[in-house]
Design a protein around this nucleic acid. Structure first.
Length: 437
RNA sequence: UCCUCGGUAGCUCAGCUGGUAGAGCGUUCGGCUGUUAACCGAAUGGUCGCAGGUUCGAGUCCUGCCCGGGGAGCCA
């Protein structure tokens, strides 16, 4: 199949403004064709943008006009023509088409420019990715991931990736995907944190960024079975350092998307004023204060209860930016949380709740650095001591206070894009009972 | 695991107290020189999720099962 034309180098549609008046070739797919008898309008997308091509029967070769009449939705094409500014076009530019090369004439495309059910679209996720909305969401996802990496790289964190096959539960509470690792049982990682703690003692400031797996049968708009998490961990750091870091990270992520992805936010019809207010300082409340706020709003909750999805929404709606909630009761948090020296029943932990009901986007805190305290917690939680031998070792050889957190990428993307459901924030979502495509 | 809603044409849906299966979009053909989910005319389209049952007669009523949407718990 020929995809190179001898005399023209292809240009991407996002740079079409630079080529006004010159003959150029674009390579892409036909989003839509409209016809008015002797004039055809071809909407072409190439992954960077879209442009309407005009094929005028009076000015093109008859065989070119015939060819444009045959084109079906999503046919792959190479189109040579001259771009010009056009006030009637939605993108501001149009292409006067001279020649059309059909790379492949597409069969009838399942996804039409009309409403479809979520089930149908998910079944055709591999094709749905071509839509304007999905394209915008995934470009914003990319921008968010790039902002996270830049944030940590700029602050001298070292990227230390953690394993996906693990011998045991990191936290022991959530359900893990079990698999065979030759002749022994292994589990897919639910967090890189414990390994990041080891890395932090070697590199000082580290982060890991990878997929995590939870086999919980959660069926809500906030859950996926496979999702991506960025997890920084810092040696010589305490709870307040983790909170400061989280605040800085969120600031940078939101700033970057507002700065570089305005057109995508517009496609998604996101109310950007809700994002523009996300500037430090973020409100910080203790768990106890949060319980008081909830009680004042009439929520039936008592000190010691964990927040449900609705509680998080009520709490977050009291603020117009993400809110940091810290010092939860140790009893409802993971075993490795450092106890508060001023109130040993509390943990030096924090969660960040996104506004507008998007829920917990960050969870973390300060880790136990004392050997005896950690061993006692492992026993209390009835965790297999042998499996945690290496983790306990970290408390024997130069242990220091250390802290970090994990940020769930899909929830952040859902929040920033203003989406109803996290399933659109990842190219191929893994959901309860849905593994195809 | 529990609660709840749904499954009818390729897609989105309508189908009343049981009585011959419908529309729009798509597709095909024809018309139209500025369309924006174009428009106009014609043609095309069905194992009513599956299996039983009630009935003269079931898309419609009953039972069981399968699949999907939304939510709860749990979590990021």
């Amino acid at each position: 199949m020929v995809v190179h034309m001898p005399n023209f180098s292809p240009i991407s549609i996002e740079h079409i403004a630079d080529a006004v008046g010159q003959e150029v070739t674009i390579r892409g797919w036909l989003r839509q064709r409209r016809s008015s008898g002797k004039i055809h309008f071809l909407v072409i997308r190439d992954g960077t943008g879209e442009i309407q091509g005009v094929v005028n029967k009076a000015t093109v070769e008859p065989e070119q006009f015939e060819r444009s009449a045959q084109l079906t939705q999503e046919s792959s094409v190479m189109i040579t023509g001259t771009p010009r500014a056009e006030p009637r076009a939605t993108s501001g530019y149009e292409l006067d088409v001279h020649t059309i090369t059909i790379v492949q004439l597409a069969e009838p495309f399942p996804i039409q420019p009309k409403e479809h059910s979520v089930g149908f679209l998910m079944e055709h996720r591999h094709l749905w990715l071509r839509s304007r909305r999905q394209h915008a969401v995934l470009r914003i996802r990319h921008e968010i991931i790039r902002a996270c990496r830049d944030f940590f790289d700029d602050r001298d964190f070292t990227l230390i990736d953690t394993p996906i096959f693990t011998p045991n539960a990191c936290e022991g509470t959530t359900t893990l995907f079990q698999t065979q690792y030759f002749d022994q049982t292994a589990y897919l990682a639910q967090s890189g944190q414990l390994y990041s703690e080891a890395s932090a003692a070697a590199f000082g400031k580290v982060y890991c960024f990878g997929p995590t797996f939870r086999a919980e049968k959660s069926k809500t708009r906030r859950h996926l079975m496979e999702f991506w998490m960025v997890e920084p961990e810092m040696a010589f750091a305490e709870l307040v350092d983790a909170m400061d870091l989280a605040e800085g990270l969120l600031k940078m992520v939101v700033e970057r998307v507002l700065d570089r992805r305005q057109s995508e936010l517009k496609i998604l019809e996101r109310d950007v004023s809700k994002l523009e207010v996300v500037v430090p300082p973020l409100p910080r409340v203790t768990y106890e204060e949060a319980i008081t706020v909830l009680k004042e709003k009439g929520v039936a909750i008592e000190f010691g209860d964990d927040f449900g999805g609705d509680d998080e929404t009520v709490l977050a709606s009291s603020f117009d930016k993400p809110v940091i909630v810290h010092r939860y009761p140790a009893s409802i948090k993971a075993f490795y949380m450092e106890p508060d020296p001023e109130a040993p029943n509390l943990a030096l932990c924090m969660d960040v709740l996104a506004p507008e009901g998007y829920g917990e986007i960050i969870g973390g805190g300060q880790r136990i650095h004392n050997y005896d305290t950690l061993l006692a917690r492992i026993k209390e939680h009835r965790l297999p001591e042998e499996a945690f031998r290496w983790y306990l070792d970290l408390r024997k050889y130069g242990s220091v206070p250390h802290a970090g957190f994990g940020m769930g990428i899909e929830r952040v993307v859902a929040w920033i894009c203003g989406l109803e459901h996290v399933r659109e924030t990842i190219p191929f979502p893994r959901m309860l009972y849905t593994l195809y495509p």
